[in-house]
Design a binder for these strands. Structure first.
Lengths: 339, 339
DNA sequence: GTGAAAGCGCTAACAG
DNA sequence: CTGTTAGCGCTTTCAC
């Protein structure tokens, strides 16, 4: 692989000059020399060594992304947004899965640090119960690694998110307005703030409507299809069935619907089902899923922009809130026998 | 950030010794010195600069992954497999989306080259009509960048795949066995070999069964939900409707089913629908989707292993074929009025 | 306008 | 067992 030295020799100039030409430096270079260098670069198929450059400039043009599971539609859509924006600015993105394991997360963070990434985006999956994480974060901050958190405000960093509390409240209000009074909430992983937020919104709406909160109606979930399956089984085994199921994410809702249908339960006649996130599939399941539309792709794009701004020395807002939108589709309707 | 020099000073040894201790070099180091170095490393929160190391060792421990769209469940599952295996071996993965644009692909390849990645995995989305691509590939090979292609044999490189022809044939046979004679094939992007393979398998099965091939029954698709929607509209507008729809991937099948259902078409009574890939949703749609189970996660894992083997100087097989599996679910059944 | 020299942080000969 | 020297490929003072 040709180095800058090879180029210099061939163009009969110093490596310094080559560097100036190749980087469009503001330092003046005569047109004749510039052409000679460019010519040599073409002839030798010259490609700059990004590592060597990074060592000097102290900028790698690489960002790391921490996700719970990159094969989850929620995360993969966010990552796509990040990657698109990153590429547009000449950045590369390294992807790291944690499966929500704080230890794995730390290991990844350290590794990204070793590779001198310019910034790190936390796309979720962080937990709030891990204090050794803050040590790593401090090390990162000390070395001016830009940090951005998406949606979960677990990591103390600049944040881009939607108002999960308000969104969950709005969905619950929609259900209440239809006449539902017994609404089960299928939650997400307990340690996530997202889960807590959505539960809070649910409770707020109930309180505002004067419907007593029943802890028996808060069912566990894990943001997976399988956890929706579990929840549906629980529903089927319940004597005093709720008339609506509000799942804290779409996969859970879709998994639940699959089981309910097989059991002969009609949606929304027998039970309404609502989700959260609005993953692409939500429009293609049967019945189409009522859900909260979270701008996942944009979350990624804005997160990356925010990162870029930090790197450029700007002082962007610490918290950027993106709009969500209640999507009413076919999976919710009035209860057959309003209570 | 503490450098190896800082460590050397604090531990009262040479940088060389520090390096030897930290890398568990085979070169002997006295226990006393080793402890001193380790102690100093702990005190200074020392982290090695991976870039500097990479410059010397000529190994970055980074692999690049080229995908059409990382938010597509097919690709995202493969990527997950790659990442899992990569992490287990201390590798980082950079993800690059091409949207199947050969120019974007080339740009990415060059950039990955600049960053001295140890290897590149082509997870799909390559086209066979781009010869300037081969120039880049040659450059890569020249610099000993390990190359692995997944599923599409577009890129000339070591390959891990499933037998798409046989799988499509098997699915078509399943449909024929049910009594279908008019089976429409909804294809994928034309330039993909995967698309061509699946069409070929379809034709082979028809020929073997003595059913004449009707070009009118090969409909365009794009591996997206939306293209399934289009195909379903075409079905609805067709006078002499086929009794079965074989979509070249699951998203297409699911998109089609959504429209058909809304139009009051019963599946599989009025029309059977089959997919390809077996993405997670296939089990949760209604009716559950008959499809070809492609081991996407394993494709990623094996692809990464193959890459690692190449890097280790082993000579792994040029072509590794992974098993697929016909998954018969509820979306296919005998035609109401067998022709 | 151009170039020489220094050095980013690390590892790999080669000595001792 | 330990250290000295050199250098990966590049950018950046600083001098001319």
């Amino acid at each position: 692989m040709a180095s800058i030295m090879d180029l210099a020799r061939r163009a009969q100039v110093s490596p310094t000059t080559v560097s100036r030409v190749l980087n469009n430096s503001s330092h003046p270079v005569s047109e004749a020399v510039r052409q000679r260098v460019l010519q040599a670069a073409r002839e030798l198929d010259y490609r700059p060594n990004a590592l060597a450059r990074a060592m000097i400039t102290r900028r790698t043009q690489i960002v790391g992304v921490i996700v719970g599971d990159s094969s989850d539609p929620y995360f993969s859509t966010i990552v796509r947004g990040i990657e698109t924006e990153a590429r547009a600015h000449g950045y590369l993105v390294i992807i790291c899965n944690t499966d929500r394991d704080p230890l794995v997360e730390q290991t990844h963070l350290r590794l990204l640090h070793d590779y001198q990434v310019d910034g790190i985006i936390f796309a979720g999956g962080s937990r709030h119960d891990c204090n050794s994480l803050s040590t790593v974060l401090d090390e990162l901050r000390q070395d001016d690694v830009a940090l951005v958190a998406l949606n979960p405000h677990t990591v103390v960093a600049a944040e881009v998110r939607v108002d999960n509390v308000a969104a969950a409240r709005e969905m619950t209000e929609h259900l209440l307005a239809l006449g539902h009074r017994r609404i089960a909430l299928i939650g997400g992983p307990e340690e996530l703030t997202t889960t807590a937020d959505r539960l809070q919104g649910y409770r707020q709406a109930l309180a505002a409507a004067g419907v007593p909160f029943d802890p028996e109606l808060v069912w566990p979930g894990a943001f997976t299809f399988e956890s929706g399956v579990q929840a549906a089984r629980r529903y089927l085994a319940t004597a005093d069935r709720p008339t609506a199921l509000f799942a804290a994410n779409d996969q859970t809702a879709i998994g639940a619907m699959a089981v309910l249908r097989q059991a002969g339960i009609r949606i929304p006649e027998d039970v309404s089902v609502a989700g959260f996130d609005d993953i692409e599939q939500a429009r293609y399941v049967f019945p189409t899923l009522t859900t909260i539309s979270v701008p996942m792709h944009r979350l990624g794009v804005e997160g990356m922009r925010h990162l870029l701004d930090q790197l450029a020395g700007k002082e962007p807002p610490e918290l950027l809130c993106l709009p969500y939108c209640l999507q009413i589709r076919d999976s919710t309707g009035p209860p057959l026998a309003p209570s």
